[in-house]
């Protein structure tokens, strides 16, 4: 009998299970300890594991990530928390130049089993400096893996997989999904990074979406059935590595591709996916691919503006209708 829990609370469950399994796992971050986390995602861990393993840091993102890197080089398996993913900008050097490149520059001498957790994304009115879908910043830095869980079981499994992984993994926890319910997938096989979830099958169009856009794509797909349009929805779950094969296989059936993402087009994972698919599998396409993105602006604050800024269920429906006309 699986236990019902929400997306916010399953984080501490996954972290606690990882810490019980492996003594070299420790947590670092601002208010992750005694306060239980700014989003209460680490609640209870300080009480169970104490201040040696659940470490409150100063507001020093460079030191948090650097300390994670240095401790990993010396045998630990740290999990660092960057409170809002936007704050990755403050420690961009540590992630982009240090964490990602260290193994390569030292020809494999450096071991970097580092997990960095960040609260990601828009939709809750945090305005532009607390709402970025920041995973897109890290797409062009070889050496980093990127996980973008959309559901409770995926968050549990991806976080466990990230911590066990011997490469650095950035795990983006979407703030607007914190209340989402689901079950803890205990006793199931560990998830391999790079395996997509085929959320829904249909022969008319392939939709690829992550995090809150995945849920909107599923909602749109359910409505499209009434119009006689059957969509496949693929959640890649990780952006690096990316399960290109799942998308290619679906295109064999649908010949139509729509990517829905919570960011601008430029430098995005969706643009990269479309480029790869068109370049490698041009023959599969019966229609030009659609990339549904946000307007080319920072995330606005006002509810009326932010609602319009994010791709909506209706936007996805309209996009799918246009695609199947081809």
């Amino acid at each position: 009998m699986s236990e019902e829990i929400n997306y916010r609370k399953v984080i501490a469950v996954a972290l606690a299970d990882a810490m019980r399994e492996d003594d070299s796992v420790l947590l670092l971050g601002e208010d992750v300890g005694a306060a239980g986390g700014a989003f209460k995602t680490t609640a209870g861990l300080f009480e169970e594991f104490g201040p040696r393993r659940v470490r409150d840091t100063p507001i020093s993102e460079q030191a948090i990530v650097g300390a994670a890197i240095g401790s990993a080089l010396c045998g630990l398996r740290p999990v660092a928390e960057i409170m809002f993913a936007d704050f990755a900008g403050v420690c961009f050097d540590q992630i982009a130049n240090q964490l990602a490149k260290y193994r390569y520059m030292t020809a494999g001498q450096a071991q970097l089993p580092v997990t960095i957790r960040m609260a990601n994304g828009a939709g809750a009115g945090f305005a532009a400096q607390h709402s970025q879908a920041a995973e897109n910043w890290f797409l062009s830095i070889p050496g980093l893996k990127i996980a973008v869980p959309a559901t409770v079981p995926d968050l549990y499994l991806l976080l466990r997989a990230a911590i066990r992984d011997d490469d650095p993994v950035l795990v983006f926890e979407h703030k607007n999904l914190f209340a989402l319910k689901g079950s803890i997938p205990r006793g199931v096989a560990p998830l391999r990074l790079g395996v997509a979830d085929i959320v829904r099958q249909g022969n008319d169009v392939t939709m690829v979406a992550t995090q809150q856009m995945r849920h909107r794509a599923v909602e749109a797909a359910d409505l499209l059935v009434q119009e006689g349009i059957e969509a496949t929805v693929i959640d890649p779950r990780t952006l690096i590595p990316f399960d290109d094969e799942a998308v290619r296989a679906s295109l064999e059936q649908t010949a139509r591709l729509m990517v829905v993402q919570e960011t601008v087009q430029a430098g995005s994972w969706g643009a990269s996916l479309i480029a790869r698919m068109v370049q490698d599998h041009f023959e599969l396409f019966d229609a030009p691919p659609t990339l549904l993105s946000t307007p080319n602006t920072p995330a606005p604050y006002a509810a009326a503006l932010e609602r319009e800024w994010l791709p909506s269920v209706e936007d996805i429906r309209i996009g799918a209708r246009e695609l199947v006309k081809w």
């Binding site: 460079q62 030191a63 990530v65 650097g66 300390a67 994670a68 890197i69 240095g70 401790s71 990993a72 080089l73 010396c74 045998g75 630990l76 740290p78 050097d93 540590q94 130049n97 240090q98 260290y102 520059m105 030292t106 001498q109 450096a110």
Partner: peptide, 28 residues
Amino acid sequence: ADFSVGAIGSNAIVGAHLPITVGAALAS
């Protein structure tokens, strides 16, 4: 870098290895 003798990295970003040193000390 020669990890076998404890030389765990020469850094080309000014100051970036200081937080990493903190991590090495944290591991100890």
